[in-house]
């Protein structure tokens, strides 16, 4: 069952990549504000562009 070690290796590497991404997100301030991002995505509607014309 050597394949188990290979697959566990793959999964661990994948998990490590995700872990790095997580640390990057934390350190670069991606998760500092856990409220405004949810509001911001609602604000880019085309009506807004229309009014600016």
């Amino acid at each position: 069952m050597s394949i188990l070690y290979f697959l566990i290796g793959c999964s661990v590497v994948l998990a490590l990549i995700f872990l790095c991404a997580f640390f990057w997100a934390q350190r670069s301030g991606q998760n500092d504000d856990l409220y405004t991002p949810s509001i911001r995505i609602l604000l880019d509607d085309d009506d807004e562009n229309d009014t600016e014309k």
Partner: peptide, 17 residues
């Protein structure tokens, strides 16, 4: 860099199999 890490890891693990 991430892909390199994953490839190295894969090869190290693949070799024994």
């Amino acid at each position: 860099a991430a892909l390199l890490v994953i490839l190295i890891g894969s090869f190290v693990e693949l070799m024994p199999t």
